[in-house]
Design a protein around this nucleic acid. Structure first.
Length: 557
RNA sequence: UGGGGUAUCGCCAAGUGGUAAGGCACCGGGUUUUGGUCUCGGCAUUCGGGGGUUCGAAUCCUCCUACCCCAGCCA
């Protein structure tokens, strides 16, 4: 991937890796991104993806994409496809290293048998409710299951019959024998296999028992020779278990689990539950609604993979719970697009201007930079004629101080065209709504320059009325009105903080004619407005639909 | 009132005993045919709080406080 923007900072994980390399604990680094294929990826996952794939890339190691598919019924193949697409879109390549937990079911089973033989696991007949009772509480120790001292032979027999599908779900579990009095609840004889009689998306009906996360995950990592197993903070308490399994099984590899804090973003929710709620309540149009913090949402909105990668680099990695200002993400996008986006003029809310001293029927083409930040992008020609549109918000009849756009008697520059002065405001007699403006232009200012050194403060974007193409434009804003929708007070629900202006659809927008051939995948800067691109789903030649990816910074409005 | 974590500028975050990086945001000045960009400058005498060790502490010791995570046959 070519980019010079992802300045690489260090963090505590890299420090650990540096030391491991220096101490010859490892010669090469292997990480993994291990999603469960039961939902769509969001920007929080992007952080994990960037960390894992990024570290592998930086150290010349490899990063595995591994689907943690140990719970059929929750998982399905559509999710694995969408996850692959998202990871690829973000710019990462797992090459041949794509794996599935289900590939290891046989080995995991063998390991479980080994644990039973070592007297470290037993088949438990307690019901889920009973298990909960026996587990104790945060402050009180639990009690041993009455089935904890079944003979190894009996355990072996029962476990094999669990595998064979002889029993109903919930009837038995295989549990590790650790310590029911452990202050760490995860160590209180955790279940390692449960009976699930559901079709698995890869192994079909071959299995009737499925391994639990704690047991499966460490084995997957060990089997793949992962060197550093990076996960989020909530798994910290699971690390002793992770190590316990690998120690008891004496695996060849014993990866080191390292936890970091997950991403929170202002004005955004990232929990799976809340995201589902947004989709199911139809507050958004789907998982790829441009307002969604999902990867597919950002993709459709028009965000770039690089801006997301740069963002993930900039936020750093630490163990402190944090809430990152969404402005940082926006900054990353603007920083990139300012350099790369072709400029174009578009009037979202048109106000007609008649240039009274411009010849009727005349038209001429004016030259403009495609991108003043990059002269190499060349020039374009823009048609001008007697009737043009400007933005309604660029005219105020009775302007406030420091307003340097158009108002009666005031002269402004039409970008790349001429200076104009407003001479008359025409209103609808009944509604008194302003319907058009009469202006005169100064023929001596072609291109937007004047030779007399006259200063014109305002520069407006405009579009020739008879040449303009129409389009629908969709403006997007934060989905929530509160910076932290995760923490809302009292009896309000987070639905009370949904931003009613999170989407605004404007029809009849007037665009520079070249935009009739706007290309999908090109992110344009609508001059003075922001960055826009064609909606990948809803736009068509006949009905252009532009998404506003992001507005420009605006210190005035 | 069990266990595991975390506390450095409004938001992220470096810093690992030698006297507080950087980015975002914000505020000013300049440039500018985008009130964009760019550019210059400002923005923690202080590191959750109190004690202590030391010539010297955000970094070590100690006590305290706040917040986060854990009682799925989810991951």
């Amino acid at each position: 991937m070519e980019n010079n923007n992802e300045a690489v900072n260090s963090n505590f994980i890299k420090t650990i890796i540096d030391n491991d390399l220096k101490d010859k604990k490892h010669n090469t680094i292997v990480t993994r991104f291990p999603p469960e294929p039961n939902g769509f990826l969001h920007i929080g996952h992007a952080k994990a993806i960037c960390i894992n794939f990024g570290i592998a890339r930086e150290y010349g190691g490899t990063c595995h994409l591994r689907f943690d598919d140990t719970n059929p019924g929750k998982e399905n193949i559509e999710y694995v496809e969408s996850i692959k697409e998202d990871v690829r879109w973000l710019g990462f390549d797992w090459q041949e290293n794509i794996f599935f937990a289900s590939d290891y079911f046989e080995q995991m089973y063998d390991c479980a048998v080994q644990l039973i033989k070592q007297g470290k696991a037993f088949v438990c007949s307690l019901s889920p409710e009973e298990i909960r009772e026996y587990r104790g509480t945060l402050t009180d120790p639990g009690r041993d299951s009455p089935y904890k001292n079944r003979s190894i032979e009996e355990n072996l027999d029962l476990f094999e019959r669990m595998k064979a599908g002889e029993f109903d779900e919930g009837k038995y579990t295989l549990r590790a024998k650790i310590d029911m009095a452990s202050p760490n609840i995860n160590m209180r004889d955790p279940a390692i296999y449960r009976i699930i009689k559901k079709e698995h998306h890869r192994t079909s009906d071959k299995w009737h028992i499925y391994p639990m996360y704690d047991y499966a995950h460490c084995l997957e990592d060990a089997l793949e020779g992962i060197t550093h197993s990076l996960c989020s903070l909530e798994f910290e308490d699971h690390r002793p278990l992770y190590d316990w399994f690998l120690d008891e099984l004496n695996t060849e590899h014993h990866p080191q689990q390292i936890e970091f804090s997950r991403l929170n973003l202002t004005y955004t929710v990232l929990s799976k539950r809340k995201l589902i709620e947004l989709v199911e309540s139809k507050l958004v149009s789907g998982w790829d609604d441009p307002r969604m913090p999902t990867i597919s949402g950002y993709r459709r909105r028009g965000f770039t993979p690089e801006s997301i990668r740069v963002f993930c680099e900039k936020i750093g990695v630490s163990r402190a719970n944090s809430m990152v200002d969404v402005n940082l993400l926006n900054f990353c996008l603007r920083e990139e697009l300012n350099k790369s986006a072709p400029r174009v003029m578009a009037v979202l809310r048109p106000l007609k201007i008649i240039i009274t001293n411009y010849p009727e029927g005349k038209e001429e083409y004016l030259e403009a930079d495609v991108n003043p930040e990059d002269p190499g992008m060349g020039k374009r020609m823009i048609p001008f004629s007697k009737e043009i549109y400007i933005e309604r918000s660029d005219f105020i009849e009775d302007p406030p101080k420091k307003y340097f756009r158009l108002s009666p008697g005031k002269e402004v520059r039409l970008n790349h065209a001429w200076y104009i002065t407003c001479e008359k405001v025409v209103r609808n007699e009944e509604t008194s709504e302003i319907i058009e403006l009469h202006c005169i232009y100064d023929p001596e200012t072609k291109g937007g320059w004047s030779s007399d050194g006259r200063k014109v403060k305002g520069s407006l974007h405009w579009v020739s009325a008879k040449h303009a193409v129409d389009a629908e434009v969709r403006l997007y804003n934060n989905l929530f009105t509160t910076a932290n929708p995760n923490e809302i007070d009292g009896d309000a629900t987070y639905n009370d903080y949904i931003n009613p202006d999170s989407i605004e659809i404007i029809k009849g927008c007037k665009l520079e004619p070249d935009l009739a051939d706007a290309k999908i995948n090109v992110r344009y800067q609508f001059l003075r407005l922001g960055y826009y691109w064609l909606d990948p789903k809803d736009s068509s030649k006949e009905n252009l639909v532009f998404n506003r990816i992001l507005s420009l910074r605006d210190k005035w409005s």
